[in-house]
Design a protein around this nucleic acid. Structure first.
Lengths: 209, 209
DNA sequence: TGGGCTATGTAGACAGTGGCAACATCCCAG
DNA sequence: CTGGGATGTTGCCACTGTCTACATAGCCCA
């Protein structure tokens, strides 16, 4: 008693978004095509335009979704740690891990400039992801585990580190093969490069543990 | 007595390469078009195929040229410093500076995976750029200014740092407006995050100078 | 001298793309 | 009911990368 496909889809927007994410994961962000998304969703090549202004808007929606996922991943990783520095560290590792798990998604999110004007939702979602880092940095500073300096600058420093690792990793520039090796490298970078407060810090205690 | 355009161009390959670099600088790597390059070079839309296998090969040539320029910039910046740590630091700053000076070029070089198989010249040029960092790291280690550890790993660490900064900067993620501010931030990151040898290092001497 | 081979450039065609306009269908507010 | 707005479709356009066939020119060798 299967109803033949109704003329109106119902929640095409969501289906298109999911299709786009899947397609990008399969063929990469450059080979990704608006018409192929429509095909996979079983609609005509112009249906997407009823839900997204243009190709860029759909990609921005994909990015927005990605920022949310990234935010969640960082928050969850941080929540599993007690030590404030470890919280920051594992948020950073979660960042790299996300990039490795969804390289194409990550690419869509970060390869193009984010435009507050044309895609405010994406910009906001990105802002939210970044604010996770900022608050973790503040947490470290509250416990005197990080040098006292504008927490925004320190968060940008942390972001730069993990972003560099992630980007180099997913473009095949790091000589490590497995995800585990890359994460190990990320751990090394974070452990040995974070400008921790040298007067007194907990990390140096369990560094030899 | 101007000769009308000869049928054969003479050095079309070089002209196409330069046109491509200029065009990419103007419209960005995604809007960049093979046919437009041909147009600007004053040849038919198929002439480029006599010199480059396909669009990707031309982009790889652009990247190769960029790696060379980047290598030179880092070498020159390093050569101006005497202290080994300063040499490494200024090579890193030159990396960021290059990205800011030629963001689209930088994007072509680093956004896509580098394929040793399909574009060996590009891969080699990239390798050469990286080897600059490695040798500078080794120089620091020779003078006991950097922790002793596989210099490749340390070079990758340095690379990750400056690459993250560069990439975030040219995609508009850093809240700094001028190139000078960004370089200042890069300096902060390098100064406070490089895993310098804590037993004895020169940097800590002039840190308060 | 000249004839042909090869490198280089041109012309035309094709499938596929993003996007626009015009039309079709459906659902719900009045 | 009914008509209008939201959603989907069809057809079209300019443009792209790339393929095949053809044109031209320079150069080597008979």
């Amino acid at each position: 008693m299967e109803r033949s496909k109704p003329y109106h889809h119902g929640n095409l927007r969501e289906v298109l978004l999911q299709s786009a994410i899947r397609l990008i994961a399969q063929v990469g962000p450059t080979a990704f095509t608006l018409r192929e998304v429509a095909r996979q969703a079983g609609v005509s090549h112009n249906a997407p335009y009823r839900h997204f202004q243009d190709k860029g808007a759909l990609l921005a929606a994909v990015a927005t979704q990605g920022y949310g996922e990234l935010t969640d991943a960082m928050l969850e990783a941080a929540s599993k740690e007690l030590n404030v520095l470890d919280r920051l560290k594992h948020a950073g590792l979660a960042y790299v891990s996300f990039a490795l798990r969804r390289p194409e998604h990550f690419t869509v999110m970060f390869d193009a400039p984010v435009s507050k004007q044309t895609h405010p939702e994406a910009a906001d979602a990105a802002e939210r992801a970044f604010s996770v880092l900022v608050s973790l940095v503040k947490g470290c500073q509250d416990k005197k585990q990080l040098m006292s300096r504008d927490p925004h600058d320190l968060a940008l420093l942390a972001w730069s580190m993990v972003h560099g690792i992630a980007k180099l990793a997913i473009t095949g520039r790091l000589p490590y093969r497995s995800k585990a090796e890359i994460l190990k490298f990320a751990e090394f970078v974070i452990d040995d490069s974070l400008p921790i407060d040298r007067r007194r810090n907990i990390r140096s205690q369990h560094a030899h543990a």
